[in-house]
Amino acid sequence: MRNQTQRLTLLALCASATLVLSYLEALLPPLYAAIPGIKMGLPNVVILFVLYRRGVRDAAAVSAVRLVAVALLFGNVMTLAYSVAGAILSLTVMGILRRFNWFSPVGVSVAGGVCHNVGQILVAMALLKTEEIGYYMPVLAITGTLAGILVGLLGGLLLKQLGERAD
């Protein structure tokens, strides 16, 4: 991308898209009330798109704007701690995997989804001072994988439609 204005515009657009998708996701009925902490993570389609098109730094920027705005709009400070930990871990891993080119967007997104859950579990263990919550991990690994596959497929479609190169 040739200038900063274009970059800023694209990132701002993507950040607002994540907010709309977060809202949309909040409207969907909770299908799995029995197991907390499960979300499909629709906004991550946009994060994945930015990661591929612009790199990990810009993906982190969009993710940061999204987390703060979502916490202010729909959540609270407690949920922010969980999502920040998840986001840092998953973005780090996705950034590394993206660079190595081992996986398609689906694989990268699956790794990101599972790492997001790992981050959340670690924060929960630290905040609640209990290891018992670690029992959730296998369940969250399965749902995180499924969510990652869906996000990866949608993100791949988006990249195909809009072009993967950074223009």
Partner: peptide
């Protein structure tokens, strides 16, 4: 190749999770 590695990754995670459960 990437798709194949994707499947291996997904299978590995699911296997570990099921073993954990």
């Amino acid at each position: 190749q990437c798709r194949k590695r994707d499947r291996i990754l997904i299978a590995a995670i699911l296997l570990l999770a099921v073993m954990g459960i």
